[in-house]
Amino acid sequence: MNSKLNLIVGGFVTFAIFCLFFIALNASTVEPIFKEKGYTVHASFNDVTGLNVRSPVRIAGVKVGVVQNIVLDQTTFSAKVYILFENRFNHIPIDSELSVTTEGLLGAKYLDLTPGFESEYLKQGGIVQRTTSSLSLEKLLGKIATSFSMEK
């Protein structure tokens, strides 16, 4: 066996693995394989258009959690959103408000959390009562159009 050849091929493989790690760490988000550590709460929205599983939840622009699941509540026909907060953010008041917000004018949707003032904090299985649904540009334009046509 040619030892120099082995060395060169070893270098090639190492280089490929280095590239893989670089891309995994610096140029992509690696979804955790194991269950994330944190606590889940849920909230009901009238409209979550544009919000996806893994959309971020932010307080003052800082990511504190992700949307874990979105299901339809069959009795009230509202969207039930399950949110996973990271364990280190465990001082979120129970009367906080969640709103579906857009990054920029055309950017992706995320959940913005405005902290409340209660001294009780959100725990595993908690509910966020105060929510604001996403603002639909189409509906808004539709309303303006109909109100104009009413005036005529």
Binding site: A27, S28, T29, E31
Partner: peptide, 15 residues
């Protein structure tokens, strides 16, 4: 530049 890439690319789904 790098944070746009890091937030938008998923390792399991894209790479």
């Amino acid at each position: 530049y790098w944070s746009m890439i890091q937030n938008g690319v998923f390792f399991m789904g894209d790479v």
